[in-house]
């Protein structure tokens, strides 16, 4: 099976998910071609074990993100077969458009894949799973942190192809993040607060611990809806972000079904809540029945001891 991977980049290099895309392609017996838009990360990609070939796709369109233009350039550079990208905002956009250009279906946010192109992806934000089988070419995006990454030590050949597309989007103004804090979508450790925190000012305690642990701070929908200081970008759940970090600490979150949908696949879940009947305890690996006022200082002190 011919697989072409659209490399996911971060800054001037590859995003860690790119190794996972190669790992998933290799597990299907493919020796994938990796396309690097604007040539970003091409040398790195050539060093990933199992990569058949790296193509630097260089064109004017790659200076800013325009899914339509990028899809046109990648479409022209890629052979037939299966187009694989990461299930990020940009990856989903580009792969959906390549598939539409080619008149083939796209399956997004896949969490397991086997030969014969049997794939599973969550629906209803993980309340159920959909299994599909595609015969023939298609586009696929894979959820980050669900496929084993390929290792290093590869030495694939690299070539450059000149391809661009019509840019329809113009950036008028770049706005820097309000803080340098990690986004929940990128974090391996997340500490989330809910209405039980009492007020947005108490999230300072969560920020302090997250900063110490190198994690991000999230929030429940109830907290986001109630308090202006807690933006929707922090919301974890069915109408917010779906996350799967190694460690998710839920503080003062009761665990509404739509919140659980967004975080239940986290590897380890710690819940701190004063209500022993809170639904969050049903998904927690470690539940602590206590108020956040009592538990957070102890948690911060204990974690400070071992970091």
């Amino acid at each position: 099976m011919d697989i072409t991977i659209i490399a996911e980049t971060q800054g001037n290099g590859l995003h860690a998910v790119t190794n996972q895309l190669v790992g998933a392609a290799s597990s299907l017996g493919a020796s994938p071609t990796v396309l690097c838009g604007g040539g970003v990360g091409a040398d790195e990609a050539a060093g990933i074990a199992g990569v058949g070939k790296v193509l630097s796709v260089t064109g004017d369109c790659f200076s800013t993100f325009d899914g339509g233009a990028w899809a046109a350039a990648f479409d022209a550079a890629a052979g037939s077969g299966v187009i694989v990208g990461a299930a990020t905002a940009q990856g989903r956009d580009v792969v959906a458009r390549i598939a539409a250009r080619r008149g083939i279906p796209v399956v997004q946010d896949v969490v397991s894949m086997s030969p014969g192109l049997n794939m599973t992806h969550p629906i209803y934000s993980g309340k159920a799973m959909q299994e599909v089988t595609v015969s023939g070419d298609c586009g696929v995006t894979l959820r980050a942190n669900t496929f084993a990454p390929a290792g290093g030590g590869g030495s694939a050949e690299t070539a450059t192809v000149q391809q661009s597309g019509d840019v329809k989007i113009a950036v008028q103004e770049a706005i820097a993040k309000a803080s340098e804090r990690l986004d929940v979508a990128d974090a391996d450790i997340i500490i989330s607060g809910g209405r039980g925190m009492g007020g947005p000012e108490n999230f300072d305690k969560l920020y302090a611990l997250a900063d110490e642990m190198g994690g991000a701070v999230g929030a429940s929908r109830a907290a986001v809806d109630a308090w202006d200081g807690i933006p929707h970008t922090m919301q974890v759940g069915q109408t917010g972000k779906t996350v799967n970090p190694s460690l998710y600490i839920a503080v003062g979150i009761s665990g509404a079904i739509q919140h659980l949908a967004g975080m239940r696949t986290s590897k380890y879940i710690v819940a701190i809540n004063k209500d022993p009947e809170a639904p969050i305890f049903k998904v927690a690996d470690y539940g602590i029945v206590a108020t956040w006022e009592e538990a957070m200082p102890v948690l911060a002190a204990e974690i400070a001891k071992i970091l």
Binding site: G68, A71, A89, R92, D93, V94, A100, V106, V107, H121
Partner: peptide
């Protein structure tokens, strides 16, 4: 279905 394909696909 949580796919996010419709907007970009219709655009294409």
């Amino acid at each position: 279905r949580n796919q996010g394909s419709t907007g970009p696909g219709v655009a294409e």
